[in-house]
Design a protein around this nucleic acid. Structure first.
Lengths: 174, 174
DNA sequence: CCTTACTTTCAGTTTGTACTGAAAGGACGG
DNA sequence: CCGTCCTTTCAGTACAAACTGAAAGTAAGG
């Protein structure tokens, strides 16, 4: 089994911490980091040993990474075990994660806000104020959704172009 | 003390859940939701009763919201207690949060990546591959930083304009 | 089929974060 | 300055999420 270099250790540990701050399981993030740096697909057993976690923990974590769509199992000739490899395209990886977090978190929030606005009884005291607040929040989430929908279809290069355009507008405004 | 309407309850509970998913303490998020919906600033005591949490918990949570800069203490004539109110501008609120999360999480990651690239020993086996991966990741984080820096200075309206421009480019591309 | 190699599931345990209540620390009014 | 009202701090506790290891499940090879 391959020992980790100091550099790999540094990257993996940092990535793990990062994960926890964004509501992603530390081990899940660490496994992803390991696979991302690895030039070849790794079997679960080796991942477990390298990161010093239980084999079963790896199983669950890999499963989660697979549902995100950023890790997949590949087969190696003459080996019955599954080997796992990470997607290497960073932009696509984050796009996948963002898309899914939007679906799981942003969309339900939009629904909640719509439901609240629908349920709002105009006769209730302070209804106008509440509506104002809910609408402001809803407007923000709609804008985020719009932004997301537009990024979704764009190739990486176009996003970069937009970045440059933003820079120009900023200069004009100031 | 004002009882919560069903609608407020719904909003506050949802916001609390939302918070936990993004690494923000549930109570902190709930307090923010309550203050956001409240037309008037509330004393800590009332927040504690309304949400059924300990007075001391409110104290800590408010403190955190204050460091984010999205809640502040105000004084009410003839009342010795501090009253707390939430910022009402949603865009500004998220801008503040994003800016600070960037500083706490994105920036250290950029540094880590730069350090890794600097430490990388070209003589080590697989160094080229590792460099490639680290550079790809670093490039992404640089782009995110660039994007953030540009958004930072822009007024809300300009962000909306960029959204529309993106829509146009998308149509052209397809 | 049976064996062996590998993977997943799950009940119990550990760990870390959040929360509480009591005590200490201000500050204002009298 | 003393009492009271309010806020913060902190040590201990509760709770939820993560993790483990054993056992059950699955599939390939002989």
């Amino acid at each position: 089994m391959a020992e980790l270099t100091g550099l790999q250790k540094q990257y993996i540990l940092h990535w793990g911490e990062m994960g926890t701050r964004w509501g992603i399981n530390r081990t899940v993030a660490q496994i992803h980091a390991l696979l991302y740096l690895s030039p070849k697909a790794l079997p679960a057993e080796e991942i477990a040993e390298t990161l010093s976690v239980a084999r079963s923990n790896v199983s669950t974590s890999i499963r989660e990474l697979e549902t995100w769509g950023i890790v997949r199992a590949v087969h190696v000739l003459g080996d019955r075990r599954e080997h796992y490899e990470s997607m290497k395209d960073v932009w696509e990886m984050f796009r996948l994660v963002i898309e899914q977090r939007k679906r799981r978190e942003i969309d339900p929030t939009r629904e909640m806000l719509r439901r609240c606005l629908a349920d709002l009884d105009p006769k209730e005291a302070g209804a106008d104020y509440t509506r104002e607040r809910l609408q402001a929040m809803a407007g923000f989430f709609e804008a985020v959704t719009e932004l997301h929908d537009q990024m979704k279809g764009l190739p990486t290069g176009t996003v970069r172009k937009l970045l440059k355009m933003g820079a120009k507008m900023k200069r004009k405004a100031s």
